[in-house]
């Protein structure tokens, strides 16, 4: 089958790849481009581990075809740290012990980032709602909820 050219921006850098028609964005990111931060959990859109941000929207990369992402601005957890300094959400997840095996963590952080970008001071209910598409097997969720609330507090203190 003929391959399809795809160009998009990944964490601020231009990327160009030839992919087979029907290739998921998850597969293109992990196996073609080498960004393994989005995880393949269920490959059917139910676990949230593959979550990425496309043009500001939270998306499941396992259900997104790579060829539909031409010209898109794609953000993954691998692009959050700047100059070796962790993003406030990453720092908050570490401080709150909000990760154990770590497989769900990149998806959780993407979901939390979209929430905080839109709702800088979320309520607990807002956080629960934002994370409801993501499954975690280890933590029981409470440490993750606390981490997102802590990151929001840290952001608002920095802004003040």
């Amino acid at each position: 089958m003929a391959k399809v050219p795809v160009q998009f921006t990944l964490n601020g850098s231009e990327k160009a790849e030839f992919v087979e028609s029907g290739t998921t964005l998850l597969h293109a990111l992990r196996d073609k481009i080498g960004d393994t931060s989005p995880k393949g959990g269920c490959h059917q859109g139910t676990c949230g581990a593959c979550s990425v941000i496309i043009d500001g929207e939270l998306r499941l990369s396992c259900l997104t075809l790579a060829e539909t992402c031409g010209g898109a601005d794609i953000r993954t957890t691998a692009g959050l740290a700047e100059g070796g300094v962790l993003h406030p959400l990453q720092r908050a997840f570490l401080d709150a012990f909000a990760t154990q095996c770590g497989f769900c963590t990149p998806g959780m952080i993407m979901a939390a980032k979209v929430l905080l970008d839109r709702t800088p001071n979320p309520s607990r209910e807002d956080v629960v709602e934002a994370l409801s598409g993501n499954i975690c097997r280890c933590t029981g969720y409470e440490p993750i909820i606390q981490a997102v609330l802590a990151a929001a507090r840290a952001n608002s203190q920095n802004a003040a």
Partner: peptide, 17 residues
């Protein structure tokens, strides 16, 4: 047979622990 049918509690199903 998959995560569509094998449902686990999410962050909205937490008891005070």
């Amino acid at each position: 047979t998959d995560f569509n049918q094998y449902l686990m509690p999410g962050p909205g199903d937490l008891a005070e622990t």
